[in-house]
Structures are given as structure tokens and as C-alpha cells.
Amino acid sequence: MTETEHVSPGPFVPSRYRVVDRKTENSDITTLWLEPVDRPIAPFKAGQFNMLTAFGVGEVAISISSAPGAPGAIEHTVRDVGAVSHALASSQIGDVVGLRGPFGTDWGLESLTGCNVVVVVGGIGLAPLRGAMRYLAENPAPDRKVVLRVGARLPDQIVFPEEMERWREMGVDVEVTVDVADAAWTGHVGVVTQILTELPFDGAGAVALVCGPEIMMRFSARSLIDLGVSPENIRVSLERNMQCGIALCGHCQLGPFLLCRDGPVVPYAPLAAELITEIER
């Protein structure tokens, strides 16, 4: 081993990870399983994100969608929306991608021991919460009920449906609603707030984890507050342009937050509630 291998290559240099498996979740969402080629990243917590490099195309922030501490490859669920995410979503088994991380705040699972949990997600918002959901489903606590409420535009835009079924079997109260459906769909039709009109427990004292587009989080947070959940106990995952992940590039500012450092997971009250209603912040 040469001396240089002990020297940190610096915070901008990605570790090489190999794509060991991939799954097309739906028309524009793909999950990649990645294993380190040499230099693994540090252990992560649920809710944190990594910077993924498609070599020659660029780097992009992607939340980690596997559970913390789980053995095996680290999972990222990528939505094909730009040049870099397209290159990542198109990568094949055996390809090498770059990885830096983990970055940002997490869902704070260790604080969810003695309280009921409501998880509300919209669209691909389940990806950043999938690790937390796996953890909550696989580590049941007698004094904790877990409720998952999922909203999607169309039935085929629901991500991880089989996994949600497994969580349901493990005791999680799962409800899914879509905006538009035909008779092949036997679940709810309506917006996610319509399946947030009651909870199987007292909202006061419960913790809510919410992830989705900002409008959806806003409406969901209001419904949760109507159900008695304290605004301070609602955690939301916010997003802005992220280019470095380490609070150096200035892009992910949202008012007082540098979201790669102070987020993505922030309490809804007092700051986020205001920030996500302000335009062009």
C-alpha cells in the first residue's frame, strides 16, 4: 500500500461505486444498487443524501433509499429529469459511478421510540423515506403505531408498491390514494389530504415525516395540524439546487438554510412553514 492511499483525496473527489443491480420502478424512476469499488463512504442515516456522478456528464444529489445499517449494496432511486439523472438512470450493471456523501440532516429515527409516527409522501417522495419506513417496519415497538399515507397521480406512478404491501403485513397502517384511476384500481381516489382526515391515534404527541413537492407538504402539514399533530413535530424534507453537498457552493440556500447542511430534513415549524409559502425564495 502506498502512502498516498492514506491521504484523503479531498471532499470533492468521488468514490467509485459499481452498479450491481438495477430495477425500473416505472417509466421514469429507476433504483440502482451500488457497491464500493475501493473507498466506501461513511455510514449514513435515513433521510440523508449522496452526490452521484455519472462520469463525463455531471454530479447530482440523490437521496439514499435503502435502510441505514442494512447489509449489502446501498440503494438510490433516481428520477430521470435531467441530463445527469438520465445518465444515472440509464446506467447498466457493471458500470462505475461516483459517490460522495452522506450529506445533510436525517429523519431522526432514534427519537421515534415512544411515539406514534405518521409518514406522508407524495410522488417519488417515498424514496427519501424508504429507508426510514424499512427501519420502522422492521423494528416494531409496542408503544409505537406507524401510519403511511401515500399520494400519487396515477396508479402506475406509485413507487415500491410491493414493499408497501410487505410493510402492511408487518403492521404498518398503509393507505394509498391516486388522483386519477380506472376500475382496475381498488384503492382510494382523491388527494393525499383526503386520507389524512383521521388517525388511528391521538395526533398530539405523534411525529410526522413528510416528503413530496412543496405544495403537497404544505397542504399535508395543515391536515396534520388539524389532526392535532404539533407543528414542531412535523419534519419535512426540502430541496434546492445542490452542487457540492458540503455547504461550499451556495446553491441550496433557502432563506437562513443551507439545505445540504441544515437540511434536507427540517422541522416544519417555525421556519420551514413560512419558507415553503414564500415565492421565489
Binding site: 470533492f12 463525463g56 456528464v57 454530479e59 457540492c244 457552493c249 451556495g250
Partner: peptide, 17 residues
Amino acid sequence: FCAAVEETTDLAGTVEE
């Protein structure tokens, strides 16, 4: 201090950040 990153590839396939 705002800075953007750009990735380029030359004809020999060397990627530069």
C-alpha cells in the same frame, strides 16, 4: 463564494471536474 461545477470530457475520454 457561490460556485458551480462543470464536468467536461476530452476526446481521449478524460473527465475533468
